[in-house]
């Protein structure tokens, strides 16, 4: 069943509660919005991240973490993330609409 149909079914059977509980890695992605803006869209010099390709995000985060890419704050944050978290949160940010 398509997602749209699922939601439509939900409307027919309203109130039908659909919920998505984010995984721990997705919750980390939501923490990115604190600096990178609402849903990943920044209002200023900090770059927007919404919808960036997952492989690019993953590469940058790993480079920040390993120090091969210079940063002001990202290196300090990326050092708190493991490979699996980086992969999942990057994939999630890439899907943001």
């Amino acid at each position: 069943m398509s997602k749209l149909n699922l939601v439509f079914l939900g409307l027919i059977l309203s109130p039908y509660v659909v919920a998505e509980v984010p995984t721990p890695a997705k919750l980390l992605a939501y923490n990115c919005f604190n600096c990178h803006g609402d849903n990943g869209v920044s209002k200023g010099g900090v770059p927007s991240i919404k919808g960036l390709p997952a492989n690019i995000l993953e590469l940058h985060l790993k480079n920040y973490r390993d120090g091969t890419q210079a940063s002001t704050v990202m290196g300090r944050i990326a050092k708190g993330l493991n490979d699996d978290e980086i992969k999942e949160l990057s994939s999630f940010i890439a899907t943001l609409k």
Binding site: N34, H36, D38, S42, K43, G44, V46
Partner: peptide, 15 residues
């Protein structure tokens, strides 16, 4: 970092 401080405020408040 002073610029980021200002960006941070605008962005977290939007979040």
């Amino acid at each position: 970092e002073a610029t980021f401080a200002e960006n941070w405020y605008d962005n977290i408040m939007a979040d």
